[in-house]
C-alpha cells in the first residue's frame, strides 16, 4: 500500500520523489543508459520508527537512504526531515542529524581512538565536548567491542570490528536517525547480532529513527519494524 502525501509530523519523508542515475558522459554504452531508480516514490517515517527496507538487488534501496543525507539529489520531489526539505538545511549539520552508515565500513588512517574522535575534528562540531577514553570504551563495550584497545590501528581490525567501530563513531555524533545500509552483509554472526542490537537500542532507548536496508531475512527481537519493499521505483508497505 503506497503512502501518499507525507504528514508534516513525519520525521523522515519522501514526497513524489523521482531519481535516475545521471547519464554518464564519455563512459561505456552500458553506463550511458540513464536508469530510473525511484519513480514518484512516497514514504513517511515517524520519529522512533524502526523501518526495514527490502527489495531486489539494484532496486535503489541504498539510493533511498543516501537521499536523506544528500549524498544523492532527486530530480523531482522533496526529501524532508521534520517537514523541512533537506536541501534547505546546512549539509554538515544534516549529516550529523541523519547519520548514514556505509555498506562497507570505512576507517581512516590512525588508531581506534582517532577514528572515534574524527567527527569532533570538523568545524561542525567546534562547540561539542570530546568524549573521554572511558566514554569511548563504554560505547565500544555496548557494541560487544569492548575488547578492542583504543590505541590499536583501525586498519588492523576485522570487518566485523570495523563495522562496530563505524557504528560507534556514527552514534557519537548524536544523530536523530540512523541510516544503515546492509550493515551486517559481510559480518560474522556475533558482529551482526551486536550491530542489530545496537540499532534496536538506538530506537528503543534513545527514541531514534532507524532505516535499515537489508536483502536478507531479518527479524528484530525487541522492536516491531515497519516493513517497506522497494520495487519498480515505488515503495510498498508490507503487512507484518
Amino acid at each position: 500500500m503506497p503512502q501518499t502525501v507525507p504528514a508534516v509530523t513525519a520525521h523522515l519523508a519522501l514526497s513524489h520523489v523521482r531519481f535516475a542515475h545521471a547519464r554518464a558522459t564519455g563512459g561505456s554504452k552500458a553506463e550511458g543508459e540513464a536508469r530510473q531508480i525511484l519513480d514518484d516514490a512516497d514514504l513517511e517515517v515517524r520519529r522512533g520508527d524502526f523501518v526495514l527496507l527490502t527489495g531486489p538487488s539494484g532496486a535503489g534501496k541504498s539510493t533511498l537512504l543516501r537521499l536523506f543525507c544528500r549524498l544523492e539529489e532527486p530530480q523531482e520531489g522533496q526529501v524532508l526531515l521534520n517537514g523541512q526539505p533537506v536541501s534547505t538545511l546546512p549539509p554538515a549539520g544534516l549529516r550529523r542529524r541523519v547519520s548514514y552508515l556505509q555498506q562497507t565500513p570505512t576507517v581512516s588512517a590512525g588508531s581506534v581512538r582517532q577514528n572515534l574522535l574524527l567527527p569532533f575534528t570538523f568545524k561542525a562540531a567546534a562547540n561539542e565536548p570530546k568524549p573521554s577514553d572511558a566514554e569511548l570504551a563504554a560505547l565500544l563495550g555496548s557494541l560487544a567491542a569492548g575488547d578492542i584497545p583504543l590505541d590499536q590501528e583501525a586498519s588492523t581490525l576485522s570487518v566485523g570490528q570495523r563495522q562496530r567501530l563505524c557504528l560507534a563513531r556514527a552514534l557519537l555524533t548524536r544523530p536523530e536517525a540512523l541510516l544503515l545500509d546492509e550493515p551486517t552483509s559481510a559480518l560474522d554472526p556475533d558482529s551482526a547480532s551486536a550491530v542489530l542490537t545496537a540499532a534496536e537500542s538506538f530506537c528503543l532507548d534513545s527514541g531514534g529513527t532507524v532505516l535499515l536496508v537489508s536483502h536478507a531475512d531479518f527479524t528484530p527481537t525487541r522492536v516491531s519494524p515497519v516493513h517497506y519493499r522497494l520495487e519498480g521505483g515505488r515503495l510498498a508497505w508490507m503487512r507484518a
Binding site: C69, L71, P91, G93, Q102, S108, T121, F122, T173
Partner: peptide, 15 residues
C-alpha cells in the same frame, strides 16, 4: 569512500 565517510560525520567538502 573515505571522502563520503567524512562527509557523513559532519565534514564539509574542504575537510
Amino acid at each position: 569512500s573515505v571522502v563520503e565517510m567524512q562527509l557523513c560525520l559532519g565534514a564539509d567538502a574542504a575537510e
